[in-house]
Write a protein that binds this DNA or RNA. Sequence first.
DNA 1: TCTGGGGTCCTAGGACCC
DNA 2: TCTGGGGTCCTAGGACCC
Length: 414
Amino acid sequence: MLALVDCNNFYVSCERVFDPSLEGRPVIVLSNNDGCAVARSNEAKALGIRMGAPFFQVRDLCNRHGVVVLSSNYELYGDMSRRVTSVLREFAPQLEIYSIDESFLHLGGIEDPTAMAKELNRKVRQWTGIPVSVGIANSKTLAKAANKIAKSKGSGVCQLEPATCTESLSKIPVGDIWGIGRRLRDKLAHLGISTAKDLAQAHPPLIRRIGGVTLERTLRELNGISCIEMEQPQPRKNICSSRSFGHPLTEISDVEEALSNYAITAVQRMRDQGTLAQGIQVFLGTNTFKENAPQYHNSISSSLPEPTDDRFTIVSTALRLLKQIFRSGYSYKKTGLLLLDLVPRHMRQGELFTQSNTESRAQLNRALDELNLQYGRNGVFLASQGIDRKWKMRRNQCTKRWTTSWSEIPTAGI
DNA sequence: TCTGGGGTCCTAGGACCC
DNA sequence: TCTGGGGTCCTAGGACCC
């Protein structure tokens, strides 16, 4: 038996913990650059604001209905997520963090999962301020479905048993099932499969022809046969860092500055997970939404002479690759890079023919890590990262880092 | 004016090996 | 006229997730 715990409207709920006046009001949180609505309170959903809606398309609606509009504050959400997880661990030591607001819990040996889930629900709310919903079943896909039902019921907890859940599945559109996106939904519709129940009762070989082994697994999971195991966290195989610019850029020097910063972010994440990159890919593009403007998109990759986690090598390689694909005369919207084929640090294979000063470089990198730990991110930075930061993303309505910065800690008045 | 960012897995097809 | 059989590795593209 396993449970899926999902935080309700997570980013909005985080904001409400530190500003209770948002309770009961329509609230949305925007993506980077204040671009799209990526979290909505129930009141905002009721107004018809869709997930991922570009903000400029709903701005008037928001003004008319007094919707509170916030920029995303990932430092806050990340920290709140860690707090929620630490409470969950008290209930189920074996857990898989699936995303910033969802975890699967292994419930082996728990006698009354529903009672436990109710207690978990209460405790997370009391200790972190975040409301959660719990779906319980014996496969991940069914637990996801149960979670959806728990959210709609308002009770916050729902358990599905394969033998008795046919009725519930008949009310769930097949496109709402985990693993079924728009394409598969449309393909299935042609076969007359429109609900989760239809899929659960379909002929497996037919389903395999339509959606391969992945979709057949979904079918079996809906019948309570667990095919998707609980996973332990694995180091990432690739790390990507990219951002749209706050304003379009035309000069290579500005793009270089932005790319240097994204490269440093990627290297930091790679160093944190203890891996080395064997290759690097850089990409660059104009704004695809501006159909009348000249468009240019390109990417280029290169393998590194030896696996490395050295800032200087990564940044200089990224900038060299950027020079190769940059064309002047375009208005650029976005750049970024991928660190490819990451391998564990201890599996490093040295270069045969060249003498590299690996050890002194490693020391320098470690010193920079420590300085940045002590003085904050970018306490020390490379000159190529720049100071102007013209490309910086827009974040006009960002709340404070209430839980991770001493200078922004909340104050209470009496 | 204004449209996010970061991932995973699977499959098919090409290039190559003996 | 007729042109083997069995494999690996890599890449691109498609589909999905939050």
